[in-house]
Write a protein that binds this DNA or RNA. Sequence first.
DNA 1: TTAGATCCTG
DNA 2: CAGGATCTAA
Length: 580
Amino acid sequence: MDPNSSLLSGPAQHPTEPCMEGGRSLSPREQSRCSPFAWSQVPGSSLSDPNCFGDEHIQAKRARVETIVRGMFLSPTPLGPGRAHAGDGLSCPEKAWGRKRKQSLPAQQGPLEPGPAGKRGGGRKGGPRVRGQLHLLRQQVRHLRERVLRAVEPRAAAQGPATADQRHGPGPGPWGVDSDHHHCPGSVGDLSRLETHRASEVQYLPEGPRFLPSEARALLESLKKELTGAISQAVDSVLQKVLVDPSGRLTQLGGRLQGPVPDGRSEPSPPEGGAHKDPLPLAALPRRAQPPAGAPLGSLSLAKSLDPPRYPISPRMIPKPYQAPPADCPLVVAPAHIQEEQILGQLLGHGPGGRWRGGLPQDPSARSQPSSEVALRPWGAARLRPLASGQQQCPWPFTSTCLERLALVPPFSLTLGQIQEGLNPGHLKKAKLMFFFTRYPSSNLLKAYFPDVQFNRCITSQMIKWFSNFREFYYIQMEKFARQAISDGVTNPKMLVVLRDSELFRALNMHYNKGNDFEVPDCFLEIASLTLQEFFRAVSTGKDADPSWKKPIYKIISKLDSDIPEIFKSSSYPQELFRN
DNA sequence: TTAGATCCTG
DNA sequence: CAGGATCTAA
């Protein structure tokens, strides 16, 4: 008897939200380079200790600040005071910063420590007012630090910072409708939110009373600058601790930055122990498949098939262990392909709801723009960056250098290495998986689902050609198995149902889903069954005598395209599957 | 004329 | 899977 006892009898498999963890580690060299402030300003030392502020400290600080202020005023491109992220014109070479820092900061000495030769008697013109400002700023620093730490703390992050930064948060984005469903907390999006949060805080710092004496105001601004730097460094240090654990993995991003982790995901299901790895050498087709009692075998009849097929909402991915990127991640140099893909996946591979779309603090212009274009072409924004224009890559002087690189480098690399043109094997694989949902994708659809591809005529036709080839194989298989069924004596086309353990399915799966990374959606099985039946009817009724006998079948099938899951719009969605 | 689909070939 | 040829519809 035919062992096939159920239609569409895939083993019950639980859709798994692909939830990749992102981020990347910093090489030691990078870390050291990233932190021009060294560790002297890490809050938690004198900065956060209210008791450490004596007059001596203030005076020493003033002396230091005055030095800085003079240096700023002597600078050819003076920094607009109090406009942290608006300093577009600011040439912010790290060297210059480093010089200034060295000039004013003895190594290993905190900026708020008394300078060795502080200018005494510089006057107390600021007086109590300045002290009040200092106090205020100190409090803000504490708050900021607490909030940063809270955001990084495992539990507290679930609640998130409470206050005023929402209005600065990135909008939902064009895919944001149901994107929250896919959003993986703890992704780079959170990181970017953290950064955005900080940006908003920088803006939030009071502009400073205009009535202050100019010197005091300069002092105030300088202090703001210092404090912001300290915050930056605090974020750096915290994030570095979070991002790079001793094993070099970035797991903490998912574990700490995010809210409660759905424990349900437990461990990655082993690479498919059952399901499709079936060793059975199955009959060619589940001929005369007898469904279990009540199983609607007839549901695959032509009439029924005209109903919109049911599509799985969330195609199951077989999660693979996250692979940590190499420790020494190149900065501007375009890394190797693998690294690029890893970075791509890590930074952007968070599903259509990933927060990367508008969230990364790339540059002021990018931040200030609504991110629709950016969202549709994530790298487009990066390409607009003045990489070769001679402008320094430090549009935001107060940004944590490390964090900024963390966010910026991958787009750079991709811009230089990958985005230009050309399709890679990952794109091909993705296209094959998409074939399970759509056999006749329009070029617009392809553009929508390959946001990391710079489409041109050639690329478009190549991808169209891919699907043409997919169809070719598909129809060939259908015809082949239909004819085989006929020769095997099948008379009722409704008996022809493509099951997951049928030979036809295995052939198709081998072609489009080699490696079994993906659970073939049921809708594809229905379409396949229908196609098979159509071929069966045509051949069995002798229509194949007509040279164009396949065209009606093509027409039918072309109307049965399904919606592709939104997650496919992520430029990195399937790529996690392909590593290893 | 062009884009897209199919067929054929390698 | 790509390239070329052919056909068709816009």
